[in-house]
Simulated assay, not measured.
Amino acid sequence: MKQKIRDILAKHGGLPTPVDQLADDADLYAAGLSSFASVQVMLGIEDAFDVEFPDNRKSFQSIDAITKAVSGLVGSTEAAE
């Protein structure tokens, strides 16, 4: 799941630092994620995992936070991937 999230982040996040160089707990906003890009990432994740995020900016604070939020939305079966 984290690799899929990293792929989506790399495609839609527009970060100046390569996503593969970011720690799972790195602050994505401090790494350069803009509000607009976070919406693009959210839409990409919603499409990839067939989920709908509630409005919660904290869900996109880090790769760990995104993984936790997606896991809660799709259940533990897909989270084990």
Rank of each mutant, 00 (worst) to 15 (best):
A69Q: 06
V39W: 10
F49M: 05
E46F: 03
A69K: 01
L33P: 08
E78T: 04
Q3T: 06
L43V: 15
A37G: 12
L33S: 12
D7Q: 13
G75D: 02
M1H: 11
G13R: 09
A69N: 04
G32F: 14
S38D: 04
S76I: 09
D7Y: 01
D47P: 00
S62E: 07
A80N: 05
L43W: 13
M1N: 02
D7E: 15
I45R: 04
E81N: 04
D50T: 10
P18I: 14
V19W: 01
I63G: 00
D55T: 13
K11S: 10
S76D: 13
L22P: 08
E81Y: 02
V70Y: 05
A80R: 11
A48K: 08
D47R: 14
I5S: 01
S35T: 09
A23M: 09
A30E: 13
F53H: 03
D64G: 11
T77F: 04
T67K: 05
K4M: 00
K11F: 00
E78K: 02
D64N: 14
D25T: 10
K2F: 00
P16M: 10
G75Q: 01
V70S: 06
L9C: 03
G72Q: 11
E52N: 12
E81Q: 06
V74Q: 06
M1C: 04
S71M: 09
P18N: 15
V41N: 05
K68D: 09
L73Y: 04
K68C: 05
D55W: 10
G72S: 08
Q40W: 07
F60K: 08
S62N: 02
F60W: 09
S76W: 01
K11I: 01
Q61N: 11
A69I: 03
S34N: 07
E78G: 00
E52I: 11
A80D: 14
H12P: 00
D64Q: 07
L73T: 02
A80Y: 08
K11G: 00
A69T: 07
H12N: 13
G32P: 10
E52M: 13
D64A: 12
V19K: 11
F60P: 01
A23I: 08
S59I: 03
E46K: 12
E81K: 07
T67S: 09
G14L: 07
F60Y: 14
D47E: 15
G32A: 14
D64P: 02
F49I: 06
F53E: 02
E81I: 09
D47I: 06
G32C: 12
L33D: 06
A65V: 02
D7T: 14
G72F: 04
